[in-house]
């Protein structure tokens, strides 16, 4: 059973949703980043989503862009990121880890080589932010060849025929974009997703996890209540890292604990 399946099964039995924490690898530097990953697990994160920094992250808002700039400013490379994840996996054998990056980072290494490196580093899934289903076939093939789950994105405006294919082709979980726009930590979020969730369920898609804008425990609670199998919070955590120089791990540990507490059904 995959780590994602095992996690969703365990959480279902405990009547909890999954809390996913997103950080940019190598932000603010590789050593601190390793400590932050541990702190996310200690805080209670059920799954990690980690970014490999790219120079032109068009799906990201200013907070996560700034994290990529910090990491790239320290010379962090994809190879460094995979090394960081390999070490992390040795310390944490169970938690699902997903990589989020952009197409050019994947093709620069070569699609097959990229997915193989991800697999070797203990990565469970890869989401390529600028590869829609329309362009996905060669990425899906490379992911499957390396036994990495290709995570696909479902948005409120994604047409039904695309959702049908996405349900068949995606694996791990389905990343449901909670709203239009780029990533960011919102004050208010609303989840008018019953139709999207119903369609995904009907097509047998991997469990829906909500992302984009989720920054407070009440957002988590309302997403779980709306039917999400889990949530991913990114910008709020990344902002804590930026605002707590020297105390990053403590800051994110406490934040994650508060968010995780809100996943109980």
């Amino acid at each position: 059973m995959s780590r994602y399946d095992a996690m969703f099964r365990r959480l279902d039995a405990q009547r909890e949703g999954a809390f996913g924490a997103f950080v940019m690898l190598g932000d603010p530097d590789l050593e601190t980043s390793a400590g932050i990953l541990d702190a996310l697990v200690e805080g209670g994160a059920d799954m990690l989503e980690v970014g490999i920094p790219f120079s032109d992250p068009v799906a990201d808002g200013p907070v996560i862009q700034a994290a990529a700039v910090r990491a790239l400013g320290r010379g962090v490379t994809p190879a460094d990121c995979f090394a960081l994840l390999t070490d992390f996996r040795a310390r944490h054998p169970e938690i699902p880890v997903g990589v989020l990056t952009y197409a050019n980072i994947v093709v620069a290494r070569g699609r097959e080589a990229f997915y193989a490196a991800a697999r070797a580093a203990g990565v469970d899934s890869v989401l390529v932010a600028d590869v829609p289903l329309f362009e996905a076939p060669p990425y899906l093939e490379a992911a499957r060849a390396a036994a990495v789950a290709p995570v696909l994105i479902a948005a409120p405006n994604t047409p039904e025929q695309t959702l049908r294919r996405l349900a068949r082709e995606g694996a791990g979980y389905t990343y449901c974009v909670a709203r239009s726009g780029v990533t960011g930590a919102d004050e208010e979020v609303r989840f008018a997703h019953s139709q999207l969730l119903g369609t995904l369920r009907a097509f047998g898609a991997p469990p829906p996890v909500f992302g984009f804008g989720i920054s407070r425990p009440d957002h988590v609670a309302s997403a779980i209540e709306a039917g999400a199998a889990g949530v991913i919070s990114g910008s709020a955590i990344v902002r804590l890292i930026a605002d707590n120089r020297g105390g990053e791990a403590e800051a994110v540990r406490g934040f994650v604990a508060g968010m995780k507490a809100a996943t109980r059904r």
Partner: peptide, 11 residues
């Protein structure tokens, strides 16, 4: 060529 954009822009 192609269309490498976030899924939300495809429609």
């Amino acid at each position: 060529g192609g269309a490498y954009v976030p899924e939300i822009l495809m429609p």
